[in-house]
Design a protein around this nucleic acid. Structure first.
Length: 271
DNA sequence: ATACTCCCCTGAGAGC
DNA sequence: TGCTCTCAGGGGAGTA
């Protein structure tokens, strides 16, 4: 599932294919993908807008247009394909943008969990959903002190708190486990019991892991014109999530549920 | 304010 | 073989 590094990678791959193009047609085959405004308004408003740039905020993809801002969240399985106009639509392709070069930019999402919003550019960052997002992983303001202040009075598990997008935006279930493993902290530990020093460690490892994953991300993308979509090469680098044996002590990895999420940790190395 | 629960969806895998 | 059941999961909405 796409987390920050995958979202960055997707945005990078989209850039050369969509920036500078104009949207000539919008077809929506599953209405619930469009969170706001109405489907009709969404389709109408996008027409003839030029795509000027693309970036990310948390796990959101930001597509800047001449008038508006198109926000896309891939959730678990969202991905993009490019097809020549008129190519038979796959049953999982729910939104199709026809570009002015005759290429269709298609949003593919098996579980239909993905979301799109269309907002006026001005004040977009002051409104939902962007206004609720916390710091980016590479923000200089993301420090151990910042994290400590945000979580020291929280009674939820540290794992759950790290998934809270209003604190750090972009961490998902998999990197969360990795960050906690490298920081040697058990996922179920109450956030209020995490020391300042541990917060420092969490922040350092968050930056380290996500940086590493972003740098690998470039190689994880096959071709958007194939059926491959995005595959995480980082899977080869995972220490704990989905593993059976701890790479440090070689003991068995434990799998539990924390905050409703499948969670992996090493009972020996994480205290 | 914080912390729960439910909901959206489908395909994969388990169990019979 | 083929059916039914369970589960995963990001985040918004609703409730205690």
């Amino acid at each position: 599932m796409p987390e920050k590094p995958e979202v960055i990678t997707v945005a990078k791959c989209l850039e050369p294919k969509i920036v500078g193009r104009t949207i000539e047609q919008v077809q929506v085959y599953w209405d619930n993908i469009i969170a706001s405004p109405s489907v009709e308004q969404f389709q109408k408003q996008l027409l003839h807008q030029k795509i000027t740039s693309i970036s990310t905020r948390g796990k959101w993809i930001l597509v800047f247009l001449s008038q508006d801002l198109l926000l896309i969240h891939l959730r678990m399985e969202g991905k993009f394909f490019f097809r020549k106009e008129g190519t038979v639509r796959n049953k999982h392709e729910h939104v199709v943008f026809t570009l002015d070069n005759g290429i269709e930019w298609r949003f593919h999402d098996v579980r239909k969990f993905g979301k799109m919003w269309l907002l006026p550019k001005e004040n977009a960052f002051l409104e939902k959903p962007l206004c609720d997002l916390g710091l980016e992983y590479d923000d200089v303001h993301l420090t151990g002190q910042y994290l400590y202040e945000k979580i020291h009075d929280r009674s939820l598990p540290i794992k759950t708190v790290l998934l809270d997008q209003s604190i750090i935006a972009g961490i998902g279930n998999i990197y969360d486990d990795e960050i906690l493993f490298l920081s040697k902290i058990r996922p179920a530990t109450k956030a209020r019991r995490i020391s300042k020093k541990q917060c420092e460690s969490l922040v350092i490892h968050t930056k380290e892991i996500l940086d590493r994953a972003v740098s690998l991300g470039g190689t994880t993308i096959r071709s958007f014109s194939s059926e491959e979509g995005v595959h995480g090469l980082f899977q080869n680098e995972l220490c704990i999530h989905g593993q059976k044996i701890c790479p440090l002590c070689h003991g068995p990895v434990k799998k539990i549920v924390v905050g409703g999420r499948g969670t992996y940790y090493c009972p020996v190395c994480q205290k």
